[in-house]
Write a protein that binds this DNA or RNA. Structure first.
Length: 685
DNA sequence: TAAAATGCATGT
DNA sequence: CATGCATTTTAC
């Protein structure tokens, strides 16, 4: 309002410096001389496009989606052109694009998806784009451009007559799908190109990779398949490479920068239409996206560790909503989030019929043990020993153990149910002050504990035993090779079909040629006792991921579970009913108001900063605030943590409030940065 | 985030 | 009412 910008060339008395530095005017692009640019500056305040003048020399190269360098706040920064416009509504002086780097890499659709993801997680667009677009590799780009120029017969994805790849099925799926009710509908809708969203639970006896490849084949358009890690990726790649040939691109951060960027360019130019990759591949800029598949969405590797910490499943969901692309969330187990999407009719559940599910390895528990078993309470009860012994008669045996470590939590002395906070149902632990108990989530003190199950008033500490399992087994089976697989001792990928014992920590189970003849799942009780909100969920998922490693019941495959036989997690395994377990867990979360039935936000930082944050955030009455409670920071600065639980219907308000608060909270220099995460992996505990 | 603009206490 | 340093504002 006050000092309106003066006409070009007219010097102001007080801006002599600027005038003397001003460059001679550069001719501008005739058409749409303004570029809206998202600058790579990660400040919540600056999370909006900035307008720049497009010089004539960039008129044709600075198209939407291209990487540019611009002068911003005195610095040269990277950015992307979001759009070209005839004019700007910016009142001040516009700067000029400094450089254009390569061709377009950011499609309009990915930009919109990334914007929605940033909004959902109270992050910035530039943060999300950093995840969505791999770092530029100039050499790879040059090589790619040269190669593109050479090949005259560039495969046109528009051309329906292109015989390079024809769907191997005419909307018909392979026979394995026969036991999956609703699969015909699914393939039909994929073939005709209508939107379908599915929660797919795969039975242990079936091959998920071939099945998911079937779905990709059934869909005539582009597909993106996301797996959690490099191990899954290589298994999928073997099958996908065979089935999709040159249409397949692999997007993974494990590749070299050059390879990764080359694959990305193949995708963004539309030369490859089927993408297989790890979490960031969920943003793959394929041409006419038709199908997204997320494999094993309960795996935490699908969460981007850097801010704003998006989950590939949620990104896929957002992208599906924005584009109408079909969505398949598949796994041997069903995550609670997926169960929720099913219960909200956002996903259609598809799973194998009971007969097919029951065809997997038979599950034994202590309840199956005959007569009194004196060792039933020990770490490796008698029926588990027997399971190992019998298994060794015709193949390898897997012994799955939980991670070691002390668990500072308490359980009912009598019935061993975990002691929980009557207020927020967080786990109770020994209070740091005094001798009482305190909630580890909301810091509420609990003086008079009463077990809601058996009314006991005494508690006991729960801890994991040390991992002597391998030695114990070795001395019990002297002639047998006992190998250990774990992140500390080294992970074994695969083993032969020879009789041997593999002791593996959860998540490090090798694949056995011809499958294991038996498996023993240990430490279930201790893992079920962990204070984390998602401990049981992770255990159930791990168990269901282990079943396929063991021979089916028809070949004598047996799995022994040492955890409490009547626990619903064990029952789910016995009955091969992961969906039922997820439904019940969901109902519990609903009853206690915990995620995913509520949207969670975890804020950590200096106590004063937290106060400011919460004020600006304007929590509604329907939101629950847990804490602030002190967090045991390794650094000397005192840190607190607040957990905010809001109804998911108010997720947008929560994120918007968080963003407002992040802007308002002064960037306390030196102090520990205020951190805010929405729906983090570790919500509570 | 980094520079510019503003604010505030201090000293002449 | 300059001067220096801290805090706030702005960024095309």
């Amino acid at each position: 309002m006050d000092q309106l910008p003066l006409d070009v060339g007219e010097p102001t008395p007080k801006s002599g410096l600027r005038t003397s530095r001003a460059k001679k005017p550069v001719p501008l692009a005739e058409l749409n001389p303004i570029a809206a640019v998202v600058v790579d500056v990660n400040v919540p305040d600056l999370d909006r496009p900035f307008d720049y003048l497009v010089p004539a020399k960039f008129a044709d190269s600075a198209v939407p989606g291209t990487r540019v360098r611009v002068r911003f706040a005195g610095r040269l920064v990277d950015g992307y052109v979001l759009a070209r416009q005839p004019e700007s509504d910016h009142q001040g002086r516009l700067s000029t694009l400094s450089k254009v780097l390569g061709g377009p890499v950011l499609t309009d659709e990915v930009a919109r998806t990334a914007r929605a993801v940033a909004d959902r997680y109270a992050g910035t667009l530039s943060e999300v784009l950093r995840d969505a677009i791999p770092p530029r590799h100039a050499t790879a780009e040059k090589a790619f451009a040269a190669q593109e120029g050479d090949s005259k017969e560039r495969p046109t994805s528009e051309d329906p007559g292109d015989a390079g790849f024809a769907p191997s099925t005419d909307g018909h799926l392979s026979p394995v799908w026969a036991s999956y009710e609703g699969a015909d509908q699914l393939s039909l809708r994929l073939a005709e190109g209508t939107t379908v969203r599915v929660g797919l639970t795969i039975a242990a006896s079936d091959d998920p990779i071939e099945m998911l490849a079937d779905l990709v084949s059934a869909a005539p358009g582009s597909a993106v398949v996301v797996v959690p890690d490099a191990t899954d990726l290589s298994r999928f790649e073997t099958v996908f490479a065979r089935r999709f040939g040159d249409d397949l691109a692999i997007l993974s951060a494990a590749e070299s920068t050059a390879q990764r960027y080359e694959q990305f360019l193949e995708v963004v130019t539309g030369r490859r239409t089927i993408v297989l990759g790890t979490r960031s591949a969920v943003f793959a800029p394929v041409d006419r996206l038709q199908l997204m598949v997320i494999w094993d969405d309960g795996d935490d590797a699908l969460v981007e560790p850097r801010a704003p910490g998006w989950h590939a499943r949620e990104v896929a969901s957002i992208r599906s909503l924005g584009t109408g692309a079909s969505l398949v969330i598949a796994g041997y187990a069903q995550s609670v989030e997926t169960a929720r999407m099913v219960s909200r009719d956002w996903l259609v559940p598809i799973q194998a019929d009971r007969m097919r599910r029951q065809s997997a390895a038979r599950v034994l528990t202590a309840a199956n043990a005959v007569g009194d078993d004196p060792s039933a309470a020990s770490r490796l009860p008698q029926f588990a020993w027997q399971c190992v012994r019998r298994g060794l008669q015709d193949g390898p045996v897997l012994v799955q153990v939980g991670r070691g470590g002390y668990i500072p939590t308490v359980a009912c002395q009598q019935c061993r149910v975990i002691a929980r906070c009557p207020e927020c149902s967080g786990p109770l632990g020994r209070s740091a002050v005094g001798s009482g108990l305190a909630c580890q989530w909301c810091a509420r003190g609990v003086d008079n504990f009463e077990c809601p199950v058996c009314e006991g008033t005494q508690v006991r500490a729960v801890r994991l035993g040390s991992h002597r399992t391998a030695e114990e087994l070795q001395s019990a089976f002297p002639g047998v090779a006992v190998r250990v697989s774990g992140s500390d001792t080294g992970v074994i990928r695969s083993i032969s079909a020879e009789p041997q014992i593999v002791v593996a920590t959860v998540g490090a189970e090798p694949v056995a040629a011809g499958r294991y003849s038996a498996a023993v799942l240990l430490d279930g009780n201790a893992m079920l006792a962990r204070p984390e909100l998602r401990a049981e969920e992770q255990l159930v998922r791990r168990w269901f991921n282990t079943v396929p490693l063991v021979k089916p019941a028809s070949e004598g495959g047996v799995i022994a579970v040492t955890a409490e036989p009547h626990h619903r997690a064990v029952q789910a395994l016995v009955r091969a009913d992961p969906n039922g377990w997820a439904q019940r867990e969901l109902a519990d979360r609903e009853a206690t108001g915990l995620p995913p039935t509520t949207r969670a936000m975890v804020v950590t930082g200096a106590p004063e900063a937290l106060t400011t944050f919460l004020e600006t955030c304007q929590p509604r009455d329907s939101w629950r605030l847990l804490g602030p409670s002190p967090v045991d920071a390794e650094s000397s600065a005192s840190q607190s943590r607040v957990v905010v639980l809001a109804p998911t219907a108010q997720g947008a308000q929560l994120a918007a409030g968080a963003k407002r608060a992040l802007i308002a909270t002064p960037p306390v220099s030196d102090e520990v940065r205020l951190r805010c995460r929405i729906d983090p992996v570790r919500v509570l505990g």
